[in-house]
Design a protein around this nucleic acid. Sequence first.
DNA 1: GATGTTTTCTAATCATTGTTAGATTCTAAC
DNA 2: GTTAGAATCTAACAATGATTAGAAAACATC
Lengths: 203, 203
Amino acid sequence: MNPKVTRIKPVLKKDKTREVLLDKAAQMFSRQGYQSTSLKEIAAAANMKAGSLYYHFASKEALMAEVLDRSIQFISDTVAEEIEKLNENYTFEDGLKAFINGHLTAILKHPDYTTTTIRNNGQIPKAVQLSAHTKREHYEQQWRRLMAQGREEDFIRPDLDEQLFRLMVLGSLNWSSVWYKPSGESIDSLVKHFTQVFLNGCR
Amino acid sequence: MNPKVTRIKPVLKKDKTREVLLDKAAQMFSRQGYQSTSLKEIAAAANMKAGSLYYHFASKEALMAEVLDRSIQFISDTVAEEIEKLNENYTFEDGLKAFINGHLTAILKHPDYTTTTIRNNGQIPKAVQLSAHTKREHYEQQWRRLMAQGREEDFIRPDLDEQLFRLMVLGSLNWSSVWYKPSGESIDSLVKHFTQVFLNGCR
DNA sequence: GATGTTTTCTAATCATTGTTAGATTCTAAC
DNA sequence: GTTAGAATCTAACAATGATTAGAAAACATC
């Protein structure tokens, strides 16, 4: 009834707690898994009651979907950053270094989000998977392109299927989220060892 | 009242359905995870009702514990078999080949049991983990010894931490349970590629 | 301070789950 | 065929889960 033009839009408190909820959810999903984490727990971690979550998210699945989405986005972004540091015509060797660096850094520096993607493989409703599926495909596609380049440059030994090699590298990297302890070796050092092993391994 | 000596003990039907239950449970645990699998589902897969499970197992946790136990046992046994094929003083190179062969074969040929161990990392009650913990430790110890041998033989490049290398290999192998499709490359072929990459990778 | 909006809580619903005790059926030996 | 034991089912229990509608509180604007 009152079409006054009061459009100042504070909209700040809301987004903030939304962010907190996502962070807490990511934390618990990554540690306990999707099914083992109750909305009550997530809400409690944000000093709220379970019912209040529904003001911010439509359902538990929607919440998980957004966590997964951010998870992949973050890994993808971190890798993209590393690639941008290279000059335009980077070699496969430099490319692989950058990919490993980005992927591993993302996983180990922000395990809350990223481990959610890795640990909950196949254990969440398919409708939820679907959301992040596109981004995941896109990210994998970048790895595939890198491997194709390795093939063209003849860096990868001819009798080694480059896509199988890709799966070996990714498996190795992803698994680090299982054993990594921040108290141990530095991430930079880990990156160096991973790249050395796999650069030697493929030729 | 009648202490007659009738001790024929048939005891056969029982163990059989127990076996079926374990198989079905392993199948569902490995695919959907521990929390997402209900006793009702497992029972249904064995043409039974949920309550009947308690004649065979004390609890859901006890059932999972036994699946986990068999899972690790099976991997460990398969590797041991491969090692026994070698002559007593096998080299690190042959040893690594045998380990990779055994581990990968176990995982990919009997994914129901083995994937349960891999997928449910951290998502099951600690009391359950405890049971299989000893066997898991023992198996890891064998890998550690192999790596120590690689170090002694100077097969592993000096600046590469051999335990980190172990984690790379195991991560790579375990992750195969995520992407492997029986329709693709043969397990033997996969074994060859894995060993080549990692033998080249560590020196 | 009154008012409208935003955010959170309360309390209840409905479905599901692991678990148990007792009744029931099945099986095999006599 | 009777009987004892083995194996399964039935029906309930208590706990917990996600979800929802409406009340209450917090907040900002006038």
